[in-house]
Design a binder for these strands. Sequence first.
DNA 1: CTTATTGCAAACGTTTTGCACGTTT
DNA 2: AAACGTGCAAAACGTTTGCAATAAG
Lengths: 145, 145
Amino acid sequence: MISYDKLLEKFKNLLKNNTLKFTKQRELILKFLYENDEHFTPEEIYMILKKKNPDINIGIATVYRTLTLLEDAGIASSISFGTQGKKYELGLKKHHDHLICTTCGDIIEFFDETIEMQQEKIAKKFNFKMTDHTMKIVGLCEKCQ
Amino acid sequence: MISYDKLLEKFKNLLKNNTLKFTKQRELILKFLYENDEHFTPEEIYMILKKKNPDINIGIATVYRTLTLLEDAGIASSISFGTQGKKYELGLKKHHDHLICTTCGDIIEFFDETIEMQQEKIAKKFNFKMTDHTMKIVGLCEKCQ
DNA sequence: CTTATTGCAAACGTTTTGCACGTTT
DNA sequence: AAACGTGCAAAACGTTTGCAATAAG
């Protein structure tokens, strides 16, 4: 796993290369995702950061803007819950898919080589240039059955 | 493929069994999905039906309510586009997944036995009771590359 | 005649935007 | 100093809901 310092450097370079600025708020959000290996809504990230950092002012709009920025840069990734919004996580790990429990909301990550390979094959078959793919298995987790 | 008459009968039975009523609006929406083998947003369905049937009054709320009803009954199915809403199609076909073009918005359907089997295996491995699963391959279609 | 369904408009929750002010470069 | 980023509040977006009027059983 990449160290936080390396990640920070990567982020700073990204900003510099795009004439964007390095701000306290952007750093806070990056750090938060790095330190918390779960999935969070923008709202959750906003509330937690606001509470933990009373000295630094932060608005929900900035959280949204920064998450979009991080996702575009490939540093964060999100899963969508339809009308109920999105949840974000650090997106530097190896690609993976999700099992989502409809009762407790728990998210289990998995990686499956067979599925990955098969997706490549399918894209090729349709002459489709794949840029991303997602798989969600929805149901009841062990606890909730 | 099921005939429209059969489908209509099925729908009427469904309604009767649940003490629900058969209305012009519900029939219009069912018929629309049957006759149009593509994916539509509730808004699109609403606009088209409104224009094509000036004699029958129809509201967007009814479209949403009916689509939910049809989806719950397994007659329609939807794909989610995150914040951008959902698109519906008749859901009587064999289960399938989607290739989605980010440029032209085109949706290609496919079915892959290997992926289906692998999903079952994964659910089993995590002691997960799967109720649904979706796979989206996002990228550029042949035309848009 | 009872009950479900409708359209409308208002409410909802999430996300985006315009703008004046602050910060980074 | 110039340019970008910020928080705020308002707007936008897709969707849902309360309600009185209407239609189906």
